[in-house]
């Protein structure tokens, strides 16, 4: 799962993965609902990410008594956090694919 899916809201996916059941009436309401659900999830994920990166980069880059900022550290910390996210995502998905029954 790519990180980009966090922000996209995954609308294309939501629309296309249905194997168009013959009897399913493709009401606009259904796709609207799906779209809103995807959007809510994307917002929740983005919020979580912002909070976690801020927390970690604040801890990494700022020193008591917080007299001065350190923008360059924050910038590279953000980049590093995103790389870590991707790396961990890969490791975790590899792990759950190896033993799908063992992990909660």
């Amino acid at each position: 799962m790519a990180l980009s899916s966090i922000f996209s809201g995954n609308n294309n996916n939501a629309e296309q993965q249905q194997p168009t059941n013959t009897t399913t009436t493709k009401t606009p309401l259904v796709s609207e609902l799906k779209q809103q659900i995807s959007q809510e999830l994307a917002i929740a994920n983005a919020t979580e990410l912002v909070n976690k990166v801020t927390e970690n980069c604040f801890e990494t880059c700022m020193k008591t008594p917080y007299a001065e900022g350190n923008d360059s550290c924050v910038d590279s910390c953000l980049a590093k956090y995103m790389r870590s996210w991707n790396s961990i995502s890969r490791a975790y998905i590899q792990r759950i694919q190896q033993s799908p029954d063992k992990n909660a």
């Binding site: 970690n56 980069c57 801890e59 990494t60 880059c61 550290c73 924050v74 910038d75 590279s76 910390c77 980049a79 590093k80 956090y81 790389r83 870590s84 790396s87 961990i88």
Partner: peptide, 14 residues
């Protein structure tokens, strides 16, 4: 894991 593994962020690469 970021807290445990990453001690400085001067380099944006892992």
């Amino acid at each position: 894991c970021f807290k445990q593994c990453i001690t400085n962020a001067t380099n944006p690469e892992l």
